[in-house]
Every structure is written in structure tokens, then in C-alpha cells.
Design a protein around this nucleic acid. Structure first.
Lengths: 199, 199
DNA sequence: GAGCAAACTTGCAGAGCGTGCATTTATAGC
DNA sequence: GCTATAAATGCACGCTCTGCAAGTTTGCTC
């Protein structure tokens, strides 16, 4: 691929700056008490420009969601013949466990703001939809079959529980713990599906 | 209980009027394209007064959610000795299948607005939390156990799928169909839980 | 009833998010 | 350098929602 060019690089840099200063401000003063004007000032750009990069204030927090969506869609689309959706998901979850300070910071920001918690939930829906489609394919499910929705919802719930530990203190799962949990969930889902087949 | 008194009755009437005219306007022109000012005018009250009855425009749409929450909480709290959370839920779902024109109208309103769809999802979270607690109790689950979250998520997904049919045309489930679906889901969940025990 | 306290309604001013549009500024390619 | 394109900005505006300080209605007491 060709070198991105100055224009493109500058744009990326501006975007990164917005994310960086916004998350820092959110962490410092809270999401609600940070205004677009303050973010703009900290990023040394005009308030109006922020909306050229992000459709809304919330979208700054969920800055990587479009990429995640794309990665998941591609992984599900290109999965090898024998691999089920559950296998693909397991792989992706394992990869996502790598510790990342920015993600840690964001978790903290989201967990201390009602609006963001609700928003997060809502923003998972498109990902869940991707899974529903892939699982339906796996199961050969017809339009009236709700198994895919149920399985996908269970998967998302498990992922959420693992990635946002609610225990006190909220220490992140070790990879081994997370894997154990995920494999339990997969066992749970396979067991449930089998019960339906034998029902 | 004593007769509510004029003041209380008048308040209830105002509240009902707001809901009525708001839903009609939403259905007619769309949620986004209906302003608080228009609702106020149709209800013959001041715009400021609307916010004395509902914390936000969205809350008008989800006007009955506090009651639903309360009913669910109480049903779970007061369930008889032998009844599991799943039994209680089954009962509530069956009752909720009764056709209601206002609910039908609301479904239509929500389904044609992105914001409301996301909001709906988010607003289910507290109900799901209630179930998580009750299920954890059923299972004797400790704090690190994610089975309650997974089971509750699956239940909510099933309920959502049954109450908002995505099939085209979206004809509501008959009670028999809905019951069949729900019993499938319960079988699925029990099967999954058993698989974990034997794992 | 008259009067009083509490509850409800309203108007006003303002903060904050987000959008449309026209203008200015920076970059890319020739 | 010059021009076409893209990005940044400024400005005005509509909308939701809040705080506050009135005004108005209701319920209660004497």
C-alpha cells in the first residue's frame, strides 16, 4: 500500500488527539461534566471540527467500534469450513483479552456514567446481529427460529461479564480464568442446543 | 384504599393525555420529528410542564416501564417456594401477550426510530438485573459465577424475539405459538445448565 | 365561605449537543 | 506558482433539558 500522504496522516493524528484528550478529560471530570468546547480547546481545534470526526460526543468514547464491527464481520464471513461461529468468537475473545491502558481507562469512564452504560449496551446490538446471522447459518435455522437470537445474546452476556468484572475489587480476569469461563459458556450453549434437538 | 382525591385524579389525567397525544404524534410524524412543544400544544399544557411528568422525551414512550419493573420485582420476590425464576417469567410472559392497541402502536413507533430501539435495549437492563439476582439465588451462584447473567440474557432475548416479531409481515404470535417458543427456550436453558453440571 | 399552606403550572433565561451553510485555509497535483 | 480538492472554521439556529422565580389551583381549617 502506498504511503498515506501528509493529509491522511494529519487527519489520523487529529483523530487520535481528540480521542486522547477527550478520554483524559472524561476520566478526570466525568463524561457528563466535560463539554465539547473543552475537548476542542484541549485538542486545539474548533468545536465544530470535532463533529467532522465523530457524529456525536458518545462516538468518541466508542471510537473503535466500527473497526471491531468490521473485524468481526470479516472473521465470521471468512471462517474456515469446519469452524462454527462459537469457535470464531472464542478466538476473537481470546485476542481481545490483551491488556490495553486506553481500554482500561474507557471501562472506567463508562462504568461511572449511566448514559454511557446504556449506550454501550445499545451499541453491542449490531455485533449481536452479526452473530445471529452466522449462528443461524450454522444451525440451518429458518426465519421463525429464535435459537440464533438466544445463543447470540448468551454469548454477548458472557463476553460482557468477562470483560467488565463486577466483582469488588474489579480486577481483570486472567487469560486462563477468562478461557475457563468462555469454555463453560460454550459448553452451556452446546448442551442447551442438544437438549432442544432431543426435546 | 381511599378515593384518590381531585388533585391526584387530575394529575393522572394529565399524564394520560400526554402519553396519548405524544404516541399519536410519534406515530403520525415520527418520534424524531415531533417536538416537545408540539406535544405540549396538543395536550394543552405548557412545554415546561411535560418535564414535571416525564424526565425526558424518551420516558414518554416507555411510560409503563417503572410499573413493569415493580411488578417483576414483586413477582420474583414473592414467588412461592417451589417456583423457579423461569416459572415466574413464563407466567408473566403469558400475561403480557394480551393484545393492547397502545402497546402495538408503541412497537410500531419504536421500530421506526433508531434512537428508540437503542433506548429500549438499554432500558431492559434493569429488568435483566432483577432476573440475574433471582436466578443467582435459584442456582446458589456465588459472585464470580456468570451463569445467571447468561441465562437472564437468553431469557430477555427470547422474550424480545417473541414480543417483536421480525418476520414479514410482522404478525404477532398467537398465544400457543409464543408458549411453544418459550417452553423451547426454557428447555434450552435447563439443558445447558445440566450440561455444565455434568461437564 | 375566607384564608392559608402546599402542590401544581408556567414563563424565562440559559447551558449544551448537534446541523446546515458559507467562508477561509491547507494540501495535492500539474 | 497555480488551481482544484479537501479540511477547518465561524455563525446562526433548532432542540432537549434544567434552575429559578413567579403565578395559579387545590385541600384544609376555622
Amino acid at each position: 500500500m502506498p504511503s498515506p500522504g501528509l493529509r491522511e496522516r494529519k487527519k489520523q493524528k487529529t483523530r487520535d488527539t481528540i480521542i486522547r484528550v477527550a478520554l483524559d478529560l472524561f476520566a478526570e471530570k466525568g463524561y457528563e461534566h466535560t463539554t465539547i468546547a473543552e475537548i476542542a480547546e484541549a485538542a486545539e481545534i474548533s468545536p465544530r471540527t470535532i463533529f467532522a470526526y465523530f457524529p456525536s460526543k458518545e462516538d468518541i468514547v466508542f471510537y473503535d467500534l466500527p473497526v471491531v464491527h468490521e473485524v468481526l464481520a470479516q472473521a465470521l464471513r471468512d471462517r474456515p469450513e469446519g469452524a462454527t461461529t462459537l469457535d470464531v468468537l472464542r478466538e476473537i475473545i481470546v485476542c481481545s483479552l490483551a491488556p490495553d491502558p486506553t481500554h482500561q481507562q474507557r471501562r472506567c469512564i463508562i462504568s461511572s456514567d449511566e448514559t454511557l452504560q446504556r449506550s454501550k449496551r445499545a451499541r453491542f446490538a449490531p455485533l449481536e446481529e452479526l452473530m445471529v446471522g452466522a449462528i443461524a447459518q450454522d444451525l440451518g435455522a429458518g426465519p421463525g427460529d429464535i435459537r440464533p437470537q438466544v445463543v447470540a445474546a448468551a454469548l454477548v452476556a458472557a463476553f460482557t461479564a468477562v470483560s467488565d468484572p463486577t466483582t469488588e475489587p474489579p480486577e481483570p480476569y486472567t487469560e486462563a480464568q477468562a478461557l475457563a469461563v468462555i469454555d463453560d459458556v460454550l459448553r452451556f450453549l452446546r448442551g442447551g442446543l442438544e437438549a432442544l434437538r432431543n426435546g
